[in-house]
């Protein structure tokens, strides 16, 4: 009686264990999302309310680093899209506040494209943005340019290089040589990179 039960039970367990990859593990394909922020820094030292401050970013290098850090290849990426943008003043030490109005434009350097508006800011208090991430109001033209750049990167159509440029139009009060507008700020764009991966997971029942 004992042997009758013992032998089949042990055989069942051993077979279950040894054939684990077939019996216990199941291959699943899942889409994983990587949230990535790419940021550019601008240093302002202005004596006029109208000024331009460009900063260039090699988007392909940035994205290469993201994929490398997460151990995925470009062929695993299904899509990459802009989620949001924000800006923040990182250094400001004036005795009074300033309100600034303007836009941040983007331009494809690698394709020598035209600049389009990505972000507009109106009456933004510099002091209020000090160490405080402000959600940016996005312009469809700039988002489309960045989404296209991401698509070009994924499909190997190009290695996008993007120029971000502050195009300021108005400052209150008006800066001058004796009352310079001096602050540093950072603009960030958030991206979702969606990758498909295959993974064997235990799902025996």
């Amino acid at each position: 009686m004992k042997t009758r039960f013992l032998v089949p039970l042990l055989l069942l367990l051993v077979a279950f264990a040894l054939s684990g990859s077939n019996c216990l593990l199941d291959e699943k394909v899942l889409e994983i999302v990587y949230f990535q922020k790419t940021c550019v820094d601008f240093e302002e030292n202005e004596d006029s309310e109208v000024f331009t401050t460009p900063a260039t970013m090699d988007y392909a290098d940035e994205l290469d680093d993201v994929l490398s850090n997460n151990e995925i290849s470009k062929s695993d990426v299904n899509s990459a899209r802009i989620v949001s943008a924000s800006y923040m003043v990182t250094d400001f030490s004036h005795t009074h506040d300033w309100d600034i109005t303007g836009e941040i434009t983007v331009r494809r350097v690698d394709t020598a494209g035209a600049a389009v508006t990505l972000v507009t800011y109106t009456g933004q208090s510099v002091l209020a943005a000090l160490n405080n991430s402000v959600p940016a109001i996005l312009d469809p033209a700039g988002v489309e340019l960045l989404n296209d750049a991401l698509e070009d990167y994924i499909t190997d159509a190009a290695d996008p290089v993007i120029e971000f440029s502050v195009e300021n139009g108005n400052v209150n009060p008006n800066p001058s040589v004796t009352n310079m507008l001096v602050f540093d700020w950072r603009g960030c764009v958030a991206i979702h990179i969606v990758a498909g991966i295959s993974l064997e997971v235990p799902d025996p029942f």
Binding site: I32, V33, R81, I82, S84, V143, D203
Partner: peptide, 15 residues
């Protein structure tokens, strides 16, 4: 303005 937000998938587990 053409932005998208993506929620990640699960592991498609029965058990």
């Amino acid at each position: 303005s053409g932005t998208e937000f993506t929620f990640p998938g699960g592991f498609d587990l029965n058990s």
